[in-house]
Design a protein around this nucleic acid. Structure first.
Length: 379
DNA sequence: GTTTCCTTTCCTGCTT
DNA sequence: AAAGCAGGAAAGGAAA
């Protein structure tokens, strides 16, 4: 959990930096040298001046990472000299943070303390009032982690293979490596290397990563061409390496037993039924999952985007990738956009979604949906 | 144990 | 032609 949000941020900013058509302002890295973590993880300049994911979450539930990001944000915004920070105070979680009073803040952060204190009080009030409307922050974290795992498992991610680019179109079978070991040490090396690539620039990337058809890590201008999804993504059926997937792949060659049976068996070993593993937590309906991806635009790697934020109109940019992600959550490796979209269409009847005619891959939240509106999120 | 909800799967026909 | 959309039908897991 701890390194994952760091990772996502880097991946995310990396993605933005690499693929953005806009020149990135303020590219000079600002390092907080006292932190013994990798300096690039604290590279505020890549974060820009946009408030981070912590902004959507009740401070009470912030992870240490989010607290740190929040501090970074204010350091940057107020042009505070980061070297004056006592980093001992920068590794507390949200709960601890929320127990600090104004003097504590001044003691801990000096002249930045007042600003931090005021902002935190504001955020506490803001989220406090909307508590009921909000998704459980822990569910959001879960979605975060899922996104992270998913992204980590991508074979086309540059530098996963010892500095070699694993082009998506070249990859059929990925040598599995335990996701566990990726998470900490490996993920960190990955980040370091990844950041180096960012610094080297987009130009150095192979075609498979630059082309809009090759990679779903590429969020650039989906409107520019007609087809936004990646059919080959699915057709390749490359394994996505998460804990749940590994378990699943080991336990069953191919899951069957759900849904309408096919008219005739088509050569697949569809009768090897296996137990679906235990708990499916509540609050994990499809529309909520989609919503959670959408309300983390920094996190979702261009999988989806808002078409009209206020009206709740959104679009799948990488439809098959989202389906895969949903499949991961449901421990179902054979999920496709086709099937996911059928479930989406059932929502029309229940007014969880509204129909958007004539626009492919575009949906709109309906009156029986919640948790996506700016006001609900306290923004 | 039964019912209900929420998908998942498959399918046919239609539209873009 | 391919991809997406529409919605019926059937099945199933999980929760009520």
């Amino acid at each position: 959990m701890s390194t994952s949000s760091e990772l996502s941020r880097i991946l995310n900013t990396a993605n933005v930096t690499m693929y953005s058509t806009e020149p990135q302002p303020n590219l000079q890295p600002l390092h907080i040298s006292m932190v013994n973590r990798a300096p690039q993880l604290l590279d505020i300049s890549f974060y820009g001046t946009t408030a981070g994911p912590w902004n959507h979450v009740n401070p009470q539930y912030w992870t240490k990472k989010q607290v740190l990001e929040w501090i970074e944000y204010h350091v940057e915004e107020s042009k505070f000299d980061a070297s004056l920070l006592n980093m001992a105070y920068c590794s507390m979680d949200g709960s601890t943070l929320c127990h600090m009073n104004r003097e504590d803040f001044t003691m801990a952060f000096g002249t930045l303390g007042e600003r931090l204190h005021q902002n935190l009080e504001m955020l506490k009030a803001k989220h406090g009032h909307h508590q009921d409307d909000l998704t459980d922050p822990r569910d959001l974290t879960e979605t975060y982690d899922l996104l992270n795992d998913f992204l980590l498992g991508l074979p086309q991610s540059p530098l996963l293979h010892d500095g070699q680019f694993g082009g998506l179109l070249d990859t059929v079978v990925v040598q599995p490596s335990p996701p566990q070991e990726r998470r900490d040490s490996d993920s960190y090396n990955f980040l370091t290397a990844y950041k180096t690539e960012i610094d080297n620039g987009y130009e150095s990337l192979p075609e498979s990563l630059q082309s809009s058809t090759g990679s779903f890590l590429n969020p650039s201008s989906p409107e520019s061409n007609g087809s936004d999804s990646d059919p080959e993504f699915l057709d390749m059926r490359y394994p996505v390496k998460t804990k749940s997937f590994e378990k699943q792949e080991r336990g069953e060659q191919k899951k069957r037993g759900r849904g309408r049976p096919p008219k005739l068996s088509r050569g697949s070993d569809q009768f090897t039924d296996s137990k679906k593993s235990k708990h499916t937590p509540r609050g994990t309906h499809l529309w909520e999952f989609i919503r959670d991806i959408l309300i983390h635009p920094e996190q979702n790697q261009g999988l989806m985007k808002w078409e009209d934020r206020r009206d709740g109109v959104f679009k799948f940019l990488k439809s098959e990738a989202v389906a895969q992600l949903w499949g991961q959550k449901k421990k179902n490796s054979s999920m496709t956009y086709e099937k996911l979209s059928r479930a989406m269409r059932y929502y029309y009847k229940r007014d969880i979604l509204e129909r958007v005619d004539g626009r492919r891959l575009v949906y709109k939240f309906g009156k029986n949906s919640s948790g996506w509106k700016l006001e609900e999120l306290g923004m």
